[in-house]
């Protein structure tokens, strides 16, 4: 279980997160909703260890992980798939994926098996395996970013706006893949602006506004919530 307790993060004097509380249980898909700059990405960056919190705790299975270095957090089973994907542009698709399994580099046969699983989930990556990552389309790059994160066999996967800038058809496909990844046992924390699609696959959600969690509840509750509908679903 991943739990944020009163997490506060600052950039200089600007308070990007203010006492955020959040809980993700095993097997769930939890969605973070909110406008740009509301604090979703900061939450992810802080869980991943790229930012240090000013106060508060991040607990993974009862153990505090706040302030640990990013590579240690990946080893503990939390992998982030960042909003701007952060791929290795000049490396091939396969090289990117293999580096995704960096924490398991001692177990070559296991890595090869995971690579096959990723190729089965995203067959287009197999077709493009020898192409440089930078040559792929936006949707393919997003699949590669998710695939790379999967290579680490994470317990928790943080997905930061995987649908951003993608065509509607690809978005639909992306959400199906996310659901499939979840069904195969990975707990998912998903930041999205596409509230409808995200809530349709999620168990519960948190709504961010200027660094605070303002509404939380099950996916049904949020979809029924008048304010959430107005602000994020567009209905």
């Amino acid at each position: 279980m991943l739990k944020l307790v009163n997490l506060t993060v600052k950039y200089g004097n600007f308070e990007a997160l203010h006492r955020v509380n959040l809980e993700v249980d095993h097997g769930e898909i939890v969605v973070l909703l909110g406008a740009n700059g509301a604090g979703k990405s900061t939450t992810f960056q802080t869980i991943s260890g790229l930012n240090k919190p000013v106060s508060g705790h991040i607990m993974l299975n009862g153990q505090s992980i706040a302030g640990k270095s990013p590579d240690k957090i990946v080893k503990m089973g939390i992998v982030q798939c960042a909003e701007d994907r952060k791929l290795f542009q000049q490396m091939t698709v396969q090289e990117n994926l293999m580096l995704g399994g960096y924490v398991h580099r001692g177990k070559k046969s296991r890595l090869r098996a995971t690579l096959q699983e990723v190729f089965e989930l995203f067959p287009i990556l197999y077709e493009k395996r020898s192409n440089p990552a930078g040559s792929l389309s936006g949707g393919q790059q997003q699949m590669l970013a998710i695939g790379r994160a999967l290579m680490a066999k994470p317990e928790f996967m943080l997905l930061d706006e995987p649908s951003i800038g993608l065509a509607p058809l690809i978005v639909e496909q992306m959400f199906k893949s996310i659901q499939q990844i979840n069904q195969e046992g990975t707990t998912i924390l998903l930041a999205e602006q596409n509230a409808n699609a995200a809530l349709s696959i999620a168990d519960k959600g948190y709504v961010y506004e200027s660094g605070k969690v303002v509404v939380q509840g099950s996916a049904e509750e949020l979809l029924a919530n008048e304010e959430v509908r107005k602000a994020y679903v567009g209905a």
Binding site: G49, A82, L87, F88, M91, G100, R148
Partner: peptide
Amino acid sequence: LAMAQNREGASLVG
């Protein structure tokens, strides 16, 4: 090579 191409990406794969 990974770190040269994307430092944060390298951190995020561990």
